[in-house]
C-alpha cells in the first residue's frame, strides 16, 4: 500500500511545485527599459569605476578615507619643517598654506596622469571582451583624483585655521582653476594612455619627467626665484609651464586673496584647450588599434 501511495504523493507535490512556479518572480522577461540609451550609460560606468577605485584604495585600512585628509597634512608638515629649517624658505608669508595648496594641486596632476596613462593597459581584460567606450578609463582616473582632491581640501581648511587666514570671496574663483586643471589632465591622460599602449617605455619615462617637472615648478621654493634664473629662455619656459600657472592661480585665489594676473588665467585656459584638443585627437585617431596591442 505504502509503496503505491508514495509516487502519487510525489506527483502531487511535483504538480503543486509546478503550479506555484510561475508565481515566484524568477526573471523579468519583458524589461525593455533595463538599458540606458547608448549615450547615457557612460555616466553610470564612470560613477561605478570611480566608486570601485575609491573602495579599493581604502579597503582594509583602519583610518580609511581620513588618509585623504591626513596625507597632504603630514606631507605639508614634513616639507615645511625641512624647508623652513634647512633651506630657509620661511620668509614666505603663510608658508605651510603656500606649500599645501601647491602640493594638492600638483597631486591632482601627477595622480591623474600617472593613473590615466596606465588606464587603457590596465583595462585590457575588459576591453577585449565588452564593448565600452574607451575614453571612460582615462577620464575616470582624472575624476578619481578630483575626488581625492576634494577630501584634501579639508586639510587646506585646517591649515587656514592654523595660519589664521580667513576665507575670502576670491576663493570662489578656485573652482574655475580646478575645472581648467581637470580639462588639462583629461587631455594629457588621453594622450598618454594612447601612447602608452604602443610604447610601454613611456611608463618609465613619465615618472622621471614628472620628477623634473615637479622641481621646475615652484611648489616648495619661492616663485620669486624664477627671476634669478640666469637664462631668459629657461625663465620663459618656467613661466609658460602649465603647472606654474595652475599653481599660481590656486595660490593667488586661496592664499593671497588676490585676482591672479590675466596672463596666468589666460595660460590656464590655453593649456587646458591645447591639451584637450591634442589628447582627443591622438586618442580618437588610435583607439581602434588599441585592441591589437593590449
Amino acid at each position: 500500500m505504502a509503496s503505491n501511495t508514495e509516487p502519487a504523493e510525489k506527483d502531487a507535490a511535483l504538480a503543486a511545485q509546478e503550479a506555484s512556479a510561475p508565481a515566484t518572480p524568477v526573471h523579468t522577461t519583458s524589461a525593455r527599459d533595463a538599458w540606458y540609451p547608448a549615450g547615457k550609460r557612460d555616466l553610470f560606468i564612470l560613477r561605478e569605476l570611480v566608486t570601485k577605485d575609491f573602495k579599493l584604495k581604502y579597503r582594509r585600512s583602519v583610518l580609511g578615507v581620513i588618509w585623504s585628509v591626513l596625507n597632504p597634512l603630514l606631507m605639508m608638515i614634513v616639507m615645511s619643517l625641512v624647508f623652513s629649517f634647512f633651506l630657509r624658505y620661511d620668509n614666505i608669508e603663510h608658508y605651510p598654506l603656500y606649500l599645501i595648496v601647491a602640493n594638492i594641486t600638483w597631486q591632482v596632476f601627477s595622480d591623474s596622469t600617472n593613473a590615466g596613462m596606465m588606464s587603457i593597459i590596465d583595462a585590457a581584460p575588459l576591453l577585449k571582451k565588452v564593448r565600452v567606450k574607451k575614453f571612460v578609463f582615462p577620464v575616470e582616473k582624472v575624476l578619481f583624483s578630483l575626488v581625492n582632491f576634494l577630501f584634501s581640501l579639508i586639510a587646506v581648511f585646517v591649515v587656514m585655521l592654523w595660519e589664521g587666514v580667513a576665507p575670502t570671496p576670491m576663493m570662489l574663483l578656485a573652482p574655475l582653476c580646478i575645472i581648467l586643471l581637470m580639462f588639462f589632465c583629461v587631455g594629457l591622460s588621453l594622450f598618454l594612455s594612447a601612447l602608452a599602449v604602443f610604447f610601454r617605455d613611456l611608463v618609465h619615462l613619465w615618472s622621471v619627467l614628472l620628477m623634473a617637472w615637479m622641481y621646475a615648478t615652484p611648489l616648495f621654493w619661492p616663485v620669486s626665484m624664477i627671476e634669478q634664473v640666469p637664462y631668459a629662455f629657461v625663465r620663459t619656459l618656467m613661466y609658460v609651464n602649465p603647472m606654474y600657472n595652475f599653481v599660481t592661480f590656486m595660490r593667488d585665489t586661496v592664499v593671497y586673496a588676490t585676482m591672479p594676473p590675466s596672463s596666468v588665467v589666460l595660460s590656464c585656459v590655453v593649456w587646458a584647450a591645447v591639451s584637450l584638443a591634442l589628447g582627443y585627437w591622438v586618442f580618437r585617431a588610435n583607439e581602434r588599434r588599441f585592441i591589437l596591442f593590449i
Partner: peptide
C-alpha cells in the same frame, strides 16, 4: 559591488 560594476558595463540602468 561586482554586480553593479558589471551591470554598468553591460549598460544596465542603476535602478534596474
Amino acid at each position: 559591488e561586482n554586480i553593479y560594476l558589471n551591470g554598468a558595463l553591460l549598460g544596465y540602468r542603476k535602478d534596474f
